[in-house]
Design a protein around this nucleic acid. Structure first.
Lengths: 195, 195
DNA sequence: GCTGACCTGTGATGATCGTCACAAAATGGG
DNA sequence: CCCATTTTGTGACGATCATCACAGGTCAGC
């Protein structure tokens, strides 16, 4: 634990433990892949068109993923504390990312470097299991969010968010939320004001 | 290769090879997890509310995944030859499935039994890698489809499907497609007739 | 080749939402 | 505390789409 602050290591270790039952003894294998990285508001975690070569575990703050559609930014995800922010397809296949990930607040993360992570996985099969579980949890989230779009109207999506992710509604501005919900800013404002 | 027909084994082996570089020598580890399973039209691969305990590799025919929303069936995926049909969240976490998977045509599949697959993975780390790659490819598909919803209008979604999945448009009826695209059957009919 | 079940096309109508425009409110540096 | 910038609310209007209703088409089985 040389350049990782104690609090951050505790946090990421706890996270890995909830995923797999990762214990302190496995730490040495994965440790070299980790770095603390901080970002200022509006800094890029992943620039559009670049290949994603890391996973970012969010310690403090939040960031957003967004596409650029005809000059408009369409948010597709927000990552808060305890989340992993990444473009999993770009990461896994080495393709260029079609979207960006940007800090929405001052941000502290633990970066999992791809190359060093792969090296660790070759050494210790538990790291591969961790990777699979991580993938699983990302896929689960993705599906959950896709369902919202497929089954719900704008109003129902808003209500769903309010019930299941009240903290997201607290922290993300209305303008940013609207594109995430797939509706115009004005419409979201009106939905919110009807009761 | 006792109860798996030769043609089907060839096909699934080829599939696994495209995912990982799985070779015939690894076959013995995974073989006990596989069974050929056939379904009649409208048979269930996964009943809603049940836990998903298998992956189904589609050899011939196709099936659909759908939610029941206030009595209406909303299709969220179609699985064709070379696809893996499953509820990955239910499979991984043992939760009950919120949606159903049903044969839309007479269907031939190779079933990967969960328990036996896990046993094989414990024996042979290559099986775990295969599992991860499989998960990855499912996640990639899911994201691709979610993007359609988030970035496109009904008309654009239709055009996208026509360009990227023309075979899907050929094989799936308009009524079934409409809920997949998130629009009314009548609207899809009209979109299709404009040019 | 008839018949019933299912699928597709089409018109009329109303609801919802996007867009444009601008006002009000909140925010945050200096 | 004030001003500039950003964010949010609101009205008017039009476009798109869902819904209802029904007509025409297709297909399989008798």
């Amino acid at each position: 634990m040389l350049d990782l602050e104690a609090a951050a290591s505790q946090q990421v270790l706890h996270y890995m433990n909830t995923l797999t039952g990762f214990r302190a003894k496995d730490w040495s294998a994965i440790y070299p892949a980790l770095t603390i990285m901080s970002f200022k508001k509006d800094d890029w975690l992943l620039e559009p068109g670049k290949v994603c070569d890391a996973l970012f575990y969010i310690c403090k703050g939040y960031c957003r993923a967004f596409y650029n559609k005809d000059g408009k930014e369409i948010n597709t995800a927000f990552f808060f504390e305890e989340d992993i922010a990444t473009n999993i397809n770009s990461f896994a296949r080495g393709e260029r990312s079609e979207y960006a990930i940007q800090a929405a607040e001052p941000l502290t993360t633990i970066k999992f470097d791809k190359q060093r992570l792969y090296a660790a996985a070759a050494q210790d099969p538990d790291v591969e299991t961790l990777g699979r579980k991580c993938l699983q949890s990302i896929a689960a989230k993705q599906e959950q969010h896709a369902v919202i779009y497929k089954l719900m109207t704008a109003q129902e999506r808003y209500a769903y968010l309010a019930e299941h992710y009240p903290d997201m509604m607290q922290r993300v501005s209305l303008s940013q939320l609207s594109s995430y919900l797939g509706i115009a800013r004005e419409t979201l404002s009106r939905i919110r004001s009807r009761k």
